[in-house]
Amino acid sequence: MNETILRTEGLKTFYILDVFGTQKVVKAVNNINLDIRTNEVYGIAGESGCGKTTLLKALAAAIEPPLRLVDGYIFYYVDGKPVDVSTLSPEAKRKLRLDYIAYVPQGSMSALNPVIKLKETYRDFIESHVSGKTKEETVAMAEQHITELGLPPKILEAYPHQLSGGMRQRVTIALAALMKPAIIIADEPTTALDVVVQRGVVQLLMDIQKKLKNTIILVTHDMGVQANIADRVGIMYAGKIVEESTTEKIYGDPQHPYTKFLINSLPQFGDKSPRQSVPGSPPSLIDLPSGCAFHPRCPHAMGICAEQTPELITLDTDHKVACWLVGGQHGKTA
């Protein structure tokens, strides 16, 4: 098994909002333990509003008010040694960005500065991490980097609005790979792109991963994309990981009722029966249901589901699930 590259322990990050004098707590990431390894694609899936983006912010060490680290730890394994992220100075964090952990934003439409040429954006990114280079050397480095990734170097002379949405997303991915980071975090990189462009964007991400042999944490609600590229998948529901396993097991033998719903909603060749979606809508993260947060929408809910929160238990190697139906926590499996 590969070594650990990023680990969280009981991670809790809440948005603490002050609404007209009353405090509202949005439990966006609620007790998450992740163990992400080198040279793997880890997919995080779940409905909108389940805390995926917040989890990524925490992993990228970008916790800013109103988001707060309430409890738990995030460890970066820089050169094999664990580093507690909360102990790092802002400047130390800044240096790790792009060098150790890079970020591909959701909706690249507005992710690039609209008033400067891409060449300038490239220069800002390079010169913030590499010192002692002349302007010409930096631009040459940008050109070489762009060419290696199979993108036309003339886009460096363009402004962001002159590029298509797919090209802009590719540029943000290219920028993320600039300093050959150990981890690339991608937040819904294919959202708002049509399927053909989606394929190109995913392909670029995969090419980079193959070349750098690094880790990609991919967040998307598109289960089809997950199935194609992820090595392991974590299913997120209401701020918690409810099931985690290798992609084969998640798609071949899902245990959690929520996972089953997600997978059943995927179209399949030859199967013409109508697709079923998850009934109901996601719970408010301010006011979570008691016990298992999924029980109001779950067709198999039992008495205990509304009373106690199920722990994430290990079924067998690399398959964890948090459900009362599973693993002898309460008798038989579903």
Partner: peptide
Amino acid sequence: NFVQYAKLGGV
């Protein structure tokens, strides 16, 4: 987004 992105890129 572009400011957040530049921050996350360690600019």
